[in-house]
């Protein structure tokens, strides 16, 4: 097992710095820090902030690859700082920059607002005619495991923006929706509970939509969660073509099981075993105040 308590070597962090109130353009500042086995880039940034330069700014929250805040350009690759061990990508030197294709707010903090605006524009939520059923459900929708698999991969997106930073099309066309919003559109389009594909087609099939993508595949290569947005976009294009040619089968969104206990169990599933603890499940819990 590698020893994570001792310093392995010094690594020079070349970090992009930019203070909008003082600097006209970003510049690079270098910090040499002692690196231990298993140390992440995020920990390296903390070391610098704690010991060398308290003015360094970056964005992070969960420090475990879940919140999508810490996307950065590490040695030229857009990826998560918390999910990347320094010694896995650097021998002696490591460049750390903000995600490109976004404006820089300060140092390593990109302005992700345009991405979220585009995300909102594709209506990333379940759309159904029976809206009350979505907002105040009286039961569960029925969805088979196969139907779940059709979109599950695309739900793993944490909106980190790494794919947007990697996309060469987005590099020259700011108005292109980009991989994350398009993958999100596909995620809802193929959700069997959803009936909003045609509404989304207005956005995803427009001039700055899916057909701007020419499958450079960089988004899928960059994605730290294995979402494979390039795959989502190509499936999205196929549906757009079929819809345009009126060749797509019209499918009704899935129906719900009415109320708890109303679903019929499959015949080959044995009944649940009886209670092993007598009485109420949690008799000693205090009443919860509303």
């Amino acid at each position: 097992m590698p020893d994570s308590s001792t310093v392995v070597r010094q690594i020079r962090f070349h970090i992009t710095r930019y203070n909008p109130e003082l600097d006209r353009v970003p510049y690079v500042k270098t910090y040499a820090i002692p690196v231990r086995e298993g140390m992440t880039v995020l920990e390296g940034l903390h070391y610098i902030k704690d010991n060398m330069d308290s003015s360094l700014a970056w964005r992070y929250s969960c420090r475990m690859g879940v919140c999508g805040s810490c996307g950065m350009l590490l040695n030229g690759h857009p990826t998560l700082a918390c999910n990347t061990q320094i010694l896995h990508i650097a021998d002696r030197e490591l460049t750390v920059g903000p995600l490109p294709n976004f404006n820089i707010i300060r140092d390593l903090v990109p302005d992700l607002t345009p991405m979220f605006d585009k995300h909102r524009s594709v209506k990333p939520f379940v759309i159904r005619a029976d809206e009350t059923e979505v907002n105040e459900p009286a039961g569960e929708f029925y969805q088979s495991p196969e139907e779940l698999e059709a979109y599950l991969q695309f739900t793993y997106c944490i909106k980190c923006g790494c794919c947007m930073a990697a996309c060469p099309t987005l590099a020259t066309d700011v108005r292109y929706l980009g991989p994350m919003p398009l993958a999100a559109a596909q995620r809802y389009n193929v959700d069997s509970r959803d009936d909003g594909r045609r509404a989304r087609n207005q956005v995803t099939g427009a001039a700055q939509g899916a057909f701007r993508c020419h499958y450079a595949g960089e988004c899928s290569r960059a994605c730290p969660k294995g979402v494979d947005p390039a795959k989502a976009i190509q499936h999205l294009k196929r549906r757009l073509v079929l819809d345009y040619l009126r060749l797509a089968r019209r499918k009704k969104p899935c129906q719900k099981l009415h109320g708890p206990g109303e679903g019929k169990p499959l015949p080959n599933i044995p009944a649940a075993p009886g209670k092993t603890v007598p009485g109420d499940s949690f008799p000693n819990l205090p009443e919860r105040s509303p």
């Binding site: 991969q153 695309f154 390039a230 795959k231 190509q234 499936h235 196929r238």
Partner: peptide
């Protein structure tokens, strides 16, 4: 590829990720 024919079906992402590429 762009007609979604040669990119494969959605899968559960398991590290190391295999993508449509």
């Amino acid at each position: 590829v762009e007609l979604g024919i040669a990119v494969g079906r959605p899968i559960e992402p398991v590290y190391p990720y295999r993508t449509s590429l």
